[in-house]
């Protein structure tokens, strides 16, 4: 019997091992190393040197990192609510019998799996201040002085946010659609019997029924926002100036370009903590609301 159990453990491990080895070497070890490195100074040639909290002090003094942190927050403040609204709106529009429904849903989802480079390049053209369709449209509806978008320090961030909303809304729409379909039909029928208007049904049946999905979307979107990286690199490369410089990019610049591994790891650690804290807050908030 003992031998059987021993054998079973061996076989079990043999299933997990191929993936587990790769996972430990490629992901887990770097994760732990990143934590340690944030308290060290290292150029990868000489032996690493323990410097305590020096990297974090430097982070508080570094203008670029502070700007990156602020820009990342701004991006999240725009990207999270706008994507959520757009995704919910699309889901509500497409949650009914309709000719061409399949086409609409597929079209709404497709931007999410479209190459990000192509998306960034196209939107850069659409946002072209002189000739782009966006500004031609704004002229057409009577706005004489449309923004300079990616060429302007004020409007580059909104341009990036709008592009990312367009790209991501279809993905979260799928989650909202699944949520809408999980609300029992009887609730709507009962509220109709009680004489509720369409708006009241939305407020008192649809929205509460969507709460679990909304919560999930909120977490996923917030975490995704704080990790924003490739879209910015391709669309504006952090510019003009430092107008759209974000945390991930600052980690890349300090770590891989400048070779400041310790300092870059300290910034990574801040990014990790931010993501962790946000997730925990949202879990806590949702638990409390569910109990009351």
């Amino acid at each position: 019997m003992a031998q059987q159990k021993w054998r079973n453990t061996l076989v079990g491990w043999s299933f997990i091992l191929p993936n587990f080895l790769g996972f430990v070497i490629i992901s887990l070890v770097p994760m732990i190393a990143a934590f340690g490195l944030s308290f060290m100074e290292w150029d990868s040639f000489n032996a690493p040197e323990w410097v305590g909290l020096d990297n974090f002090e430097r982070l508080l003094r570094d203008e670029s990192t502070k700007i990156a942190l602020w820009n990342t927050t701004l991006y999240a403040l725009g990207h999270v609510p706008l994507t959520m609204l757009a995704a919910l709106g699309l889901a509500l529009l497409l949650n009914r019998r309709l000719a061409g429904l399949g086409f609409f849903r597929a079209a709404a989802f497709f931007p999410y799996i479209t190459s990000l480079v192509a998306v960034a390049v196209v939107w850069n053209m659409l946002f072209n201040p002189e000739f782009g369709p966006v500004n031609q449209f704004l002229h057409f509806i009577g706005i004489d002085n449309p923004p300079g978008w990616t060429t302007s320090t004020t409007w580059a961030m909104p341009a990036v946010i709008l592009t990312s909303v367009w790209r991501d809304m279809g993905y979260y729409m799928v989650l909202f659609l699944a949520g809408l379909q999980s609300i029992p039909r009887e609730y709507y029928e009962a509220s109709k019997v009680d004489g509720a208007t369409g708006w009241q049904r939305f407020l008192f049946v649809t929205l509460p029924g969507l709460r679990p999905v909304t919560f999930l979307v909120l977490i996923l979107l917030t975490v995704q926002s704080f990790k924003v990286f490739d879209l910015i690199v391709v669309m504006t490369d952090g510019g003009p100036g430092r107008a759209t410089l974000v945390l991930s990019q600052q980690i890349y610049r300090q770590g891989i370009i400048e070779g400041e591994f310790g300092y870059a790891s300290a910034i990574s650690f801040v990014l990790f903590l931010l993501v962790l804290v946000l997730t925990l807050i949202q879990f806590w908030f949702n638990n409390r609301r569910e109990r009351s």
Partner: peptide, 13 residues
């Protein structure tokens, strides 16, 4: 570890 952003450990990697 799925929750840990790649950006947080891409440097040691």
């Amino acid at each position: 570890t799925i929750a840990v952003p790649w950006q947080a450990y891409m440097i040691p990697q």
